[in-house]
């Protein structure tokens, strides 16, 4: 990718990326009740990274985020498939989810849900796939 030299963009990106990333995490967890979820969260996170790419260059981003995004994809798939197969251990059909309610102090009533694990898988796959695509294309030539 072209090396850009844009001070305003670079400075703004430093702040905005964190805001977007934080927002993407919020969106991810909100997903079960409000608009959001693994797809949107994942896409937003990758959007943040794409912004980084545009502001800096691909080498900088690889040093900031030294992940192999193909592995992120694989871990995500494993998460989703593992959660799906988890029901089989309890003699339930595949993809049977389980949930319960807990009352931790300070946070109030909340539910614990295995569907979140599945959604984490979706999140990771979306981030992994998007970044693999962008990085691969960006790095060629």
């Amino acid at each position: 990718m072209m090396k850009t030299n844009n001070v305003i963009l670079e400075t703004a990106t430093k702040v905005i990326v964190f805001i977007i990333l934080l927002f993407s995490v919020y969106m991810f967890f909100a997903g079960h009740y409000e608009p959001g979820g693994g797809f949107i969260g994942g896409l937003m996170a990758s959007g943040a990274i794409v912004l980084l790419l545009i502001a800096y260059d691909i080498k900088t981003v690889t040093t900031i985020l030294p992940f192999d995004f193909k592995k992120v994809t694989a871990v995500g798939l494993l998460f989703a498939a593992g959660t799906a197969a988890g029901g089989l251990l309890f003699d339930k059909p595949m993809l049977t989810h389980w949930f319960t309610y807990v009352n931790p102090p300070l946070l109030g009533k909340m539910s614990l849900h295995t569907a979140v694990l599945f959604d984490i898988g979706v999140f990771l796959v979306v981030v992994g796939v998007t970044m693999t695509i962008i990085q691969t294309i960006g790095e060629s030539e």
């Binding site: 009740y33 799906a84 569907a115 599945f118 979706v122």
Partner: peptide
């Protein structure tokens, strides 16, 4: 499914198989 966002619940729970294959 103890959720309130129907679309998300359909995706991860009711029709989770579709989503599994989609990410695949």
């Amino acid at each position: 499914a103890a959720g309130e966002n129907m679309v998300n619940v359909i995706l991860v729970d009711f029709r989770g198989f579709d989503t599994l294959f989609e990410i695949a």
